[in-house]
Each structure stands twice: as structure tokens, then as C-alpha cells.
Design a protein around this nucleic acid. Structure first.
Lengths: 228, 228
DNA sequence: GCATATCAATCTGTATACAGCTGACAGGGG
DNA sequence: CCCCTGTCAGCTGTATACAGATTGATATGC
């Protein structure tokens, strides 16, 4: 067994991406034997990875029936957005309180880099990636590893929906960039309340579109690739 | 295999309790073979449960070395308290916004029941149980299942430390009860900002004591039971 | 024609076997 | 005296086998 490094982490990463992208369709039952063959491993490490993903909210589990992909519903997405508000208003607040000067400079720098690419790029995936990097950077500045984990988990679970947003509204990145600047400036001023409030309105603004986006998302998941 | 119901969930529950109570000592390496014998099962379901607990933050994992109990340090406990602030200020806010009249009555009722027992009981475990029930009820009133999960997880992970608080300061339940009343009243008025603020100061008040409590906690974990 | 019972195919839950890796210790060389 | 290296016991990582549960289809009675 001359593997580079642990097999289960490879399986875990692959499954996590598949679940995040809804390659496993909502509520779809997972056939362990088939999946283990697809991934080139036996069921034992596969099930270990599946169990981790259940605990992280990417999958569900019913005793005796097996593992399923998480459901995709407007209500579920709304809950995730509310959870993001809860966690990220606090990361913004703590970042404003705790960030070092070096950290503040790094945040501003990140924003400047993004500004250029924002104008140029129309690649939704790339825009989303930068957006997530910004939110993660703030979490890092908060100095709280637990909150970082939460932000990362929530980001990954709403990525698919956010991707649908992004590619639908295409080039409207400008308001988002402005909102990011407002958040970063509040953090750099050390204004906790303003940072928290800016983050809250930034996330809540998108929340209401969840219902519509979920409908679009379903069509993406179930309609075959347009290359056919 | 005539088990009542799934073996892995039994193992999971047992391990979770053991980890929560630090029967597995901080950073202690877990011997899978020995533990599987203790729990009366084989290593396969044991490892599935261990993987779930890693994802939930009760254990850590190092490839090739195995599973370890989570560390117990003042910094880690502080992070958990900050995460509680993040999550529970939002559950309080959402509860104030969304709770039905029936829900509000239930919360008041819960508080009234607790008031009686608070005065009478000096059982720290029972007091803590009621305290957690109050916080979980608010999470339920928020109507957000995701936030409920988070509150439950965080409560379980700080339970040991809170237990140390409780039994050290013994009969000082009165201020906590007053704080709970303030939170409940804000929720019942539908005053989101007041509910969030009351919850924040309620949790933050205890946060500072973490460092001291961790020291006490260590002595509890490593000093043998006083019955010896 | 519909509901129900039965049965086979399939899948999950768990035990067990074994290969490879890790960490500790002893012995030899610098 | 310290460090380096070979060896070995023990543990982890994974495959596989098999028992019990589930599911869906077919047959049967009303």
C-alpha cells in the first residue's frame, strides 16, 4: 500500500467537494459499494469519511438505511445564511478589536488586489473565491480558530447557492466590493459596532434571494450539462 | 446481532460523554483496540464514531498516529465562549423576532419552574442542566435548526468547564436567574437588540473566569476521586 | 383492480485479518 | 558521553467476509 499519504483524507476531500457541488443530488441515497469503487477504495475508509461529513452537515444519515446528501430547500439555505450572520458579525467585531496593524494592512492589501480583478474578471467562480478569501481573512484576524472553522464550514455549504447567485447577476460585483470596503474600513478604525453592522447588512442583503436561487439551483443540478 | 438499535450510535454517545467529561484526558492518545474492548465492539464502528467526534471538535486526529482527546487550555475555552456569544446573541435576536405567543409562554414557564428549583437545589449538575435547557429553548424559539445544532455542540464542549464554575461558586445562582429573566423579558417584548445585548453580557460575564476554571479543571481531571 | 403478503436481490452494519507505519529501545560508532 | 541506526512490539489503515435489515417486485386473495 504505497500511498503518498492517507487514503481517507483523499476520499474525504473528494466527497466533500462532490457534496458541496451537489454532484450527489439533494436527498439522494448514497450507495456505498458503488461509491467505494468509483473512488478506488474499500467501504471502510469511505464510511469514515461519510461519518465526518455527516457531523459537518454535508450529509445526513438514517440508521439502517445509509447516507444521503443533505437536502436543498429555501428554508435550509435561509438557516445557513442566518448562521453566517451570527458567526461573521462576531468575527468582524473581534477583528476590529484584536487585529494587529500588520493584519489590518494585509486585509487592505487583499482588498486592493481584489479590486483590480473584480473589474476585469467575469468568472463567477473566481469572484466567489475572492469573496470567500475576504471573509476568511476577517475570521483569521478575529484570532479565534473556532470561529474560523465555522466560517469555513458555512462557506462551503452555501457555495453552490452563492455560485448560482453570482453567475445569474454576472457583473454586479461593484456593490459587493463597496460593502467589503466598508467592512474593512470599520475594522481598520477599530470600530466594533460598525464592523459588525456592516457585515450583518452585507450578508442579509443576499439572504432574501435564497428562495429564488434555490429554484435556479435545482434546474442546474438536474438538467444535464449543456455540452450534451 | 440482536441489538436494540444501532451499535455505532451507542458507542458514539458513550464516547461523546467520555470526551465531554474529560474521562479521556486532554491530549491523551486513544488506543483503539483497548477502547473497543472496553465498549464491547470492534474497531470498525468505534472508528466511525471517533471520526464524527473529530468533526464535532471533541477529538483531534493525526494521520498515522491516531485519535486524541481535544486539548484543554484557557485559550481554547475562551474561543468557545466567544463562539457561544456569536451564536447565542443571534438565537436571542431571532427568538425575539420569530417566537410565537405559545413559544414565549413556554419560555416564561420554563423560567418559573427553574426559579423554584434554583432556590432549593444546590446540585451543580442539576443547575447546569436547567441553564442549558434555557439556552436551548431560546435556540428552538429562533426557529433555526442550524443554530440549534451549534448551541448544542458548544454547550456540550464547555460543559465540563461550566461544571467547574458551578460547583466552585456553589449557591450564587441568583444573579444568573436574574440574567435569564432579563433575556426572556426582552424576547417576550420582541425587543431584538435588548435580547441580543442581554445574552451577550450574560455569556461574557463568565468568559473571563475561564483561565481560573481551567486550572481547577486540570486538578479535577488528574487528581483521583476523593473516595479513595 | 387494489391491497397485502412473500420472497429474492441488494445493501448496510460489524467483525476480523493483515500489511505497513510509528515510536521506543538497545547496541555500536564517533 | 552523545548520537546514530537497526530491530521489534504494538498500533493504525484498509480490505474483505458475512450476517441481518431493507427494498422493491411478484404473486395471491378479496
Amino acid at each position: 500500500m504505497p500511498k503518498t499519504d492517507s487514503n481517507v483524507s483523499r476520499i474525504y476531500a473528494a466527497l466533500r467537494r462532490m457534496a458541496a457541488d451537489f454532484e450527489l443530488k439533494p436527498d439522494e441515497r448514497i450507495n456505498e459499494s458503488a461509491l467505494s469503487q468509483t473512488l478506488g477504495a474499500s467501504r471502510t475508509p469511505l464510511r469514515e469519511a461519510l461519518n465526518r461529513l455527516v457531523a459537518e452537515g454535508f450529509l445526513t444519515f438514517q440508521s439502517g438505511r445509509g447516507f444521503f446528501c443533505r437536502p436543498l430547500s429555501p428554508a435550509a439555505v435561509m438557516e445557513l445564511y442566518e448562521a453566517r450572520v451570527a458567526v461573521e458579525t462576531e468575527t468582524a467585531r473581534l477583528a476590529a478589536r484584536n487585529a494587529t496593524d500588520e493584519g489590518r494592512r494585509a486585509l487592505s492589501g487583499l482588498l486592493d488586489e481584489m479590486a483590480e480583478e473584480y473589474a476585469a474578471s467575469e468568472d463567477a467562480a473566481r469572484l466567489l473565491e475572492m469573496d470567500e478569501a475576504f471573509h476568511l481573512e476577517i475570521a483569521a484576524l478575529s484570532g479565534n480558530g473556532e470561529l474560523c472553522r465555522m466560517v469555513e464550514n458555512l462557506n462551503d455549504r452555501v457555495r453552490f447557492i452563492r455560485m448560482v447567485f453570482m453567475s445569474r447577476m454576472a457583473a454586479s460585483g461593484a456593490p459587493r466590493l463597496a460593502a467589503h470596503r466598508a467592512i474593512a474600513e470599520a475594522i481598520n478604525r477599530g470600530d466594533e459596532a460598525a464592523a459588525a453592522q456592516a457585515m450583518r447588512s452585507h450578508i442579509e442583503r443576499r439572504r432574501g434571494e435564497a428562495a429564488e436561487a434555490v429554484r435556479t439551483a435545482y434546474s442546474r443540478i438536474y438538467v444535464p450539462e449543456d455540452g450534451s
